[in-house]
Write a protein that binds this DNA or RNA. Structure first.
Lengths: 186, 186
DNA sequence: ATAAAAACATACAGATCAGTCTGTATGCCA
DNA sequence: TGGCATACAGACTGATCTGTATGTTTTTAT
């Protein structure tokens, strides 16, 4: 990708992630990315298109990062545990301000909007990926359990954004119950 | 409360709940509540103060509503189940667009802001209320389990906002696992 | 009935919003 | 060296933002 275009995308990702989508103006993105305004509008014809691009890229990055974390473990259950570890590390990052897809869904209520669709697709991918892991671990109701685990992960994300200092403890508690749940299904 | 003031509060609650806080302007609140702009600023000296008032009132209303639902049941576990039922009914409402406190936390990242504080207090109350119910039901680790249940409830809320048509199914799945978790602790 | 209080409509200030336009400078390639 | 694409800075448009000012009408209480 063009170096200027990438610079805009990175600046927008950081600003949107922290402040939300409506609260961030194009001018501040232009300023942060050290780019002329016309250059911005050449690469991204509208703010909405930029938001879609940011979410699309974020989805790609998260898939890569989570898959890399999973691939380091061998058994299905330790792979699921790796996801919780990944989230714990994410929560501890200084630039953590919640999930960009949840934020997008909260800020754009109109159904059928592409911004929501991209967000939904990310969650659907997460759900399928977890379901596959559970299936590999011989969990009978892997589909439903994957839904529940994703609910727990999103609940953890919201809570860690609200009570940042307690994120580590919350992940520990949640994983203990999820671990018991997995064991009880065998 | 003054009838005009209440009208403003109700209109603001509906608009903020659906569209978020930054996306809603004072003019649209004034229009929806059929009030003059000066009347608005007499009762609420700033938009930020209005948001705080909306969240404070919402907290009060939710506590009353959830407590009323709990009081209809007798045993501790059916009381916890009543909370899940309450959420399921909430998700099915046509004006459901997610949790106003989660939305506020996503849109106002600066720590120490009163808007965040009110949101945190609501979640702390929920946690304590659930913990008390579990303690009454002789759950040993009632404090930690309450945290986990609140995580599940917030995860359900986020998911139901994203996939509205699947809310009922998600609540059913989540309650089944929570029910097992409670039984396993005895 | 009359005076005080509240709410009215509307215009305005100053800032910021998304997006456009102009004209200039820089780098690359032939 | 000449031609061209890209990016530059910054002014500008029209709309919208929060909040204020002004003068009139309606409600309320004595």
């Amino acid at each position: 990708m063009n170096v200027k275009k990438k610079s805009i995308l990175d600046a927008a990702t950081a600003l949107f992630s922290r402040n939300g989508y409506h609260a961030v103006g194009v001018d501040s993105i232009v300023a942060k990315s050290n780019v002329a305004k016309m250059t911005f509008y050449k690469h991204y014809p509208s703010k909405e298109f930029l938001i879609e691009s940011v979410l699309f890229q974020r989805d790609q990055d998260l898939r890569d990062s989570i898959c890399a974390a999973i691939d380091k473990r061998r058994t299905p259950k330790t792979k699921v545990k790796a996801i919780f570890d990944w989230y714990e590390e994410w929560f501890a990052a200084p630039d953590f301000h919640g999930c960009m897809f949840i934020k997008a869904t909260e800020e754009f209520p109109d159904i059928g909007v592409k911004i929501r669709e991209i967000s939904q697709n990310h969650k659907i991918w997460m759900e399928g990926m977890i379901s596959d892991l559970l299936k590999e671990g011989d969990i009978k109701s892997h589909t439903e359990m994957a839904i529940h685990i994703l609910i727990v992960l999103d609940g953890l994300t919201v809570r860690s954004n609200m009570f940042k200092s307690e994120a580590k403890n919350a992940v520990r508690i949640a994983w203990r119950y999820v671990n018991n749940m997995i064991d009880a299904d065998h």
